[in-house]
Nucleic acid binder design. Structure first.
Lengths: 186, 186
DNA sequence: TAGATTGTTAATCGATTAACAATC
DNA sequence: TAGATTGTTAATCGATTAACAATC
């Protein structure tokens, strides 16, 4: 059991807005008590669309791709790297943990056969555009783009979420310079 | 020369707010003309505190650390990985590009000797807390934390910016589920 | 019942926008 | 000068907050 006040203390928001937002999504607290943790997490996962395990595919098995596939947070968020793809013959046939590495030439067929909706792109930026344009947007609906190539947020009917690691260092730099207390986003 | 309208078309914000925000920071456009690109970038870099090259140190030279040090965006943002530190004897003595890898035991002395204000943390989460608590907060002012260990936004007098790669996949998942058009953040 | 905390309202606050005088 | 776009104002919009009746 968790109250809105508990949550507010953890994340630096006022308790009233936590109650309001949860109510907005229809989450059901118990008056005088708070929120049942198990119900709440299930509810939030459902809102985020991660209530059941989702298979995703890694494209690019270099250092960044390997780090991503091994990143512990993805497992907690119910994401499963079902396969990886690379252009390098040395890597094809090997594995990152339980994730097998296939030839990039077989990517589109794999996506179609396994109905993969989300891919994680960690190839050199020079290769990014070519891969993205060849994707079948009837199959792939979302791309998490770790390359420094910037794509529009939406292309065809695919969501593309651009991650810019350097931007985050700029945030720190700005905060240090201006003595801003960052909102902790626990 | 760039107008607020040009910028608004690129990033999906209204031109009025671009003018307002730039004016707020004191950036100086030319009425009837727009903004001189070179002046504007210099100004924005100054605001972000990245107008001159800043040396940062990488802690953890595994896959993630290596990928980060090689990430092209950091160079553009004037960040220079002056050194890397790892616990693994195999890695110590070798390099990632021009970044030499030293023993983690020498980290704090190095930070002090070189007056390094920002470190990038890419060690296993189990090692994160120990490293952070041993840092000298009179020297280090900012930490970019790529581990899945979550730190408060501020500790002692150090800014800690937590990066959660998995969170980004949740964002995509949510957008796909709710057919939200993401704000592109070019 | 008494105590506690939700869900919701109404009030406040801040951020976004449209519009336009200033001026290059 | 005529055309264009800034910087800024005043109006709008939405998000945050405090407060409290409802109720577990």
């Amino acid at each position: 059991m968790l109250t809105s006040k508990d949550m507010s203390e953890h994340c630096g928001l006022k308790s009233s807005i936590i109650r309001k937002d949860l109510a907005q999504f229809g989450a059901c607290g118990i008056k005088g008590q708070g929120y049942v943790v198990s119900e709440l997490t299930a509810y939030l996962n459902k809102i985020l669309g991660i209530n059941n395990t989702k298979d995703v595919v890694l494209v690019g098995a270099g250092h960044l791709g390997t780090a991503i596939a091994r990143y512990p947070g993805f497992i907690n968020a119910n994401f499963n790297f079902i396969a990886a793809f690379d252009i390098d013959d040395e890597k094809i046939g090997s594995s990152i943990g339980h994730t097998h590495i296939y030839s990039i030439d077989t990517l589109n067929k794999y996506l179609e056969d396994h109905k993969i909706e989300v891919i994680v792109l960690a190839v050199p930026s020079s290769a990014a555009l070519d891969i993205v344009t060849k994707l079948d947007s009837r199959i792939v609906k979302g791309i998490l783009n770790f390359t420094s190539m910037v794509f529009p947020g939406r292309m065809n009917d695919m969501y593309i979420h651009n991650i810019d690691l350097a931007k985050e260092l700029e945030v720190i730099s700005f905060c240090m310079k201006n003595c801003i207390t960052q909102k902790s986003d626990d």
